[in-house]
């Protein structure tokens, strides 16, 4: 009987697996933004090895997500930005599942580009970093992570900023927006003063080469800024009511939030979403660059205005 009990305890503790550490030091990212973005998408999708002994094939398991965060963290560190982690636990979508399994457990990664003039106001830019199972997730959503890197880089170089910019990489979007929901709650709890929330999902497909973007559920004021900057850059802009991604989590808690994406509702969107074919070589980097410029102009406008 004693043996049996030992066995039982052994199995119970079997669940506590330790994560081996992989030494990660990435070479400097190219100085040209579009080249850096290409590099980032390449590593995040397993097109290029992360280190000699690790390749990010998808961003689903705890280990894969950890390695993704470590890479993103390194990339931001190269811009002299420190990253912070927001760990959370969330219940499942219904009590029945709660009774069967453990709560969601995840980590959002974020960084703050501080204002140059004292301010307690934040503009939040976010993109999810997880993928569906066994998917490289190049378009969905390495493209948007690369966009955030590009915007962070450009915004850091703006000499006078009246607002802080918070860049967030959400965990577990593919699972009912768990990561962004947890982050929105966290902002509320910490009483952050948020000017607006801009979330990005799928910014890598432009078969018709028109550079068009869709903005989802923007308030009138935000839509105006996007329209103005888009017209300056000659980028067609469409508004839609798509609600199925991270910005929903923030709108639900009363934040001024919108989503930016490729022509998802219009149909000029990757046919490979959530499949193993969502690979590096399907990403249109000129389109990503064009959208990065648009978002930078919008955020620049917001942070330089009083």
């Amino acid at each position: 009987m004693k043996l049996n009990l030992t066995f039982i305890l052994l199995i119970l503790f079997f669940g506590c697996k330790n994560q081996e550490d992989i030494n990660l030091s990435i070479e400097n990212l190219p100085s040209k933004t579009i080249d850096a973005q290409r590099e980032i998408v390449s590593v995040l999708t397993g097109n290029k090895k992360l280190s000699t002994d690790y390749t990010i094939n998808s961003r689903t398991t705890p280990k894969e997500r950890l390695m993704t965060r470590r890479y993103l963290s390194e990339a931001l560190n190269q811009l002299n930005l420190k990253t912070l982690e927001h760990d959370y636990r969330e219940p499942n979508s219904n009590v029945f599942i709660d009774l069967l399994v453990s709560p969601f457990k995840g980590t959002n990664l974020y960084t703050i580009i501080p204002s140059t003039i004292e301010s307690d106001e934040y503009v939040l830019l976010g993109a999810h970093y997880d993928t569906a199972r066994n998917c490289p997730g190049a378009n969905d959503n390495a493209s948007a992570m690369a966009l955030l890197y590009g915007v962070a880089k450009k915004i850091s170089n703006v000499p006078v900023r009246q607002k802080n910019v918070m860049i967030v990489f959400f965990d577990q979007e593919e699972e009912d927006l768990v990561g962004s929901r947890a982050f929105a709650k966290y902002l509320k709890k910490k009483d952050y003063k948020i000017h607006s929330v801009h979330t990005f999902d799928q910014i890598g497909w432009d078969k018709d080469l028109d550079k068009a973007v869709e903005i989802e559920l923007a308030t009138k004021k935000l839509e105006e800024i996007y329209r103005e900057k888009a017209s300056e850059l000659q980028i067609p802009i469409h508004t839609t009511k798509v609600n199925s991604t991270d910005h929903q989590s923030f709108r639900e808690l009363g934040y001024n939030a919108l989503g930016i994406t490729e022509e998802f509702a219009n149909g000029d969107t990757t046919p490979f979403k959530d499949t193993p074919k969502d690979t590096f070589d399907t990403v249109d980097f000129e389109y990503l660059e064009s959208t990065t410029n648009l978002v930078f102009e919008v955020i620049n406008h917001i942070v330089t205005q009083n």
Partner: peptide, 14 residues
Amino acid sequence: ENHLQENLGVTGSL
């Protein structure tokens, strides 16, 4: 969801 799979994988099944 991945989350369920994680919970009901090898360790979960044990």
